Amino acid sequence: MASTLRALRRRILTPDISETKLSTRGFHDKGPEARFLLESVGRTFLAGFARAAESQGPDDITTLDAIEPQYRGFAYEGAGMAYALMDGLSLGPARRTARFLSGAGDRHIYMAYVGVGWAMARLPRMRWAKASAAAGDPLLRWLVLDGYGFHQAYFHTARYVRDQHEEAAFPWPADDPTGYAHHAIDQGIGRAVWFVAGSSATLACDLIDRFPERRRRDLYSGAGLAATYAGGGDEGELRTLWNRAGQHRPWVSQASAFAAQARVRAGLVVGHTVLATGVFCDLTPEEAGALTDTAVPDHPASTGPTYEMWRNNVADVFIQRGWY
């Protein structure tokens, strides 16, 4: 009976796989290879979501480790969404996400936090506190909003990308007086733009350059992260993104280093990670990832989120090296 109920829960909660097709989303189709990669990202995300939704608990998803390294992180992102969604909908104690983040999801912690943001985008705001309760690390919690921004741009592309809707006074987190939320959301929108553009660097840059200048740093940063973590661009396209980013290049480098560290931490470095960090950082993924570790602030920021200080610390390394 319990397994039947879990299977029913999976069927009810898991989005339809057709929603991940470029044709369904109306995204640019660059060709079969890029289409396969980007749609595989979506399929694997849903596989991770479905496995978590049907699991007995966060310790029961070890089968995700059989997924090839190229896509495995996206499965854990989907699992993060599922556990946060179930916590948000639960009438009892919300414990799934906390167990996931401290257990199976720890190696994929960045992706797991992003998955929580996906769940928030699907829940009424009155349920956000419960869904996000476990994702309260003061350094990483902004990745939740990155995930929220990605979701909105991916599923509501006309409004968030083409009409450039901006979340001005955002209600989460409630204890942030700086208004940083819209920056973190824009970083997620920038990641989604890479998918909307079908991993075409020229089209991604065209879309970003239509936004007001004040938003482009975060958008280019997001695109650089997606190009490094998800892939889809050859060396020429990565150099196009790099060249078009102009004054925002240090934050493309920063985001590429963050993506590299996410893959290094999880043991998921693949060829396109090496290519992207070479173009964007002039470093190996391991070197770029190590740089992000040494740049973590050793004290809370007094003028804004510590997460933004971390990002700026990494960007400053590349500025000091003249790598822009």
Score class of each variant (00 low, 15 high):
2 A>C: 06
2 A>E: 04
3 S>I: 15
5 L>F: 12
9 R>I: 12
10 R>N: 00
10 R>G: 13
13 L>P: 02
14 T>N: 00
14 T>A: 00
17 I>Q: 03
17 I>R: 14
19 E>C: 15
25 R>G: 07
26 G>R: 14
29 D>Q: 03
30 K>M: 08
31 G>V: 05
37 L>I: 13
39 E>C: 11
43 R>C: 13
47 A>H: 09
47 A>T: 14
51 R>I: 08
54 E>W: 10
56 Q>Y: 06
57 G>Q: 07
59 D>V: 14
64 L>H: 05
65 D>E: 09
68 E>W: 02
68 E>T: 15
73 G>R: 10
75 A>F: 06
77 E>Y: 05
81 M>S: 06
85 L>N: 10
86 M>V: 13
87 D>T: 09
88 G>A: 03
90 S>F: 13
95 R>Q: 11
96 R>Q: 11
96 R>G: 12
96 R>K: 14
97 T>R: 01
99 R>L: 10
100 F>I: 15
104 A>W: 03
105 G>L: 02
106 D>H: 14
107 R>I: 04
108 H>V: 15
109 I>C: 04
114 V>S: 04
114 V>Y: 07
117 G>Q: 10
122 R>F: 05
122 R>E: 12
123 L>T: 14
126 M>G: 05
128 W>F: 07
130 K>L: 14
131 A>E: 08
131 A>K: 12
134 A>V: 15
135 A>T: 05
142 W>G: 09
142 W>L: 13
145 L>R: 06
150 F>A: 01
155 F>N: 13
156 H>E: 06
156 H>I: 03
157 T>M: 06
161 V>E: 01
161 V>Q: 00
169 A>L: 11
169 A>T: 10
174 A>P: 00
175 D>S: 09
184 A>F: 15
185 I>P: 02
188 G>F: 11
190 G>V: 07
190 G>S: 04
191 R>A: 11
194 W>L: 05
195 F>R: 09
201 A>V: 10
202 T>L: 09
204 A>Q: 07
204 A>P: 12
206 D>F: 08
209 D>F: 00
209 D>H: 00
211 F>L: 01
215 R>A: 04
219 L>A: 00
221 S>F: 01
226 A>H: 08
227 A>Q: 01
228 T>N: 05
230 A>C: 14
230 A>V: 15
232 G>Q: 06
232 G>Y: 06
234 D>Q: 03
236 G>V: 08
236 G>I: 09
236 G>M: 09
237 E>T: 04
243 N>S: 13
245 A>H: 02
250 P>H: 02
251 W>H: 06
254 Q>N: 02
256 S>W: 03
258 F>N: 04
262 A>I: 10
264 V>Q: 04
267 G>R: 08
267 G>P: 12
273 T>K: 00
275 L>C: 06
275 L>W: 13
276 A>P: 08
281 C>M: 01
283 L>I: 06
283 L>A: 09
283 L>M: 15
284 T>V: 10
284 T>I: 12
286 E>N: 11
292 T>N: 02
296 V>A: 05
297 P>I: 06
298 D>S: 05
300 P>R: 01
304 G>T: 01
309 M>L: 12
313 N>M: 05
313 N>V: 12
314 V>T: 15
316 D>T: 15
322 G>T: 02
323 W>H: 14
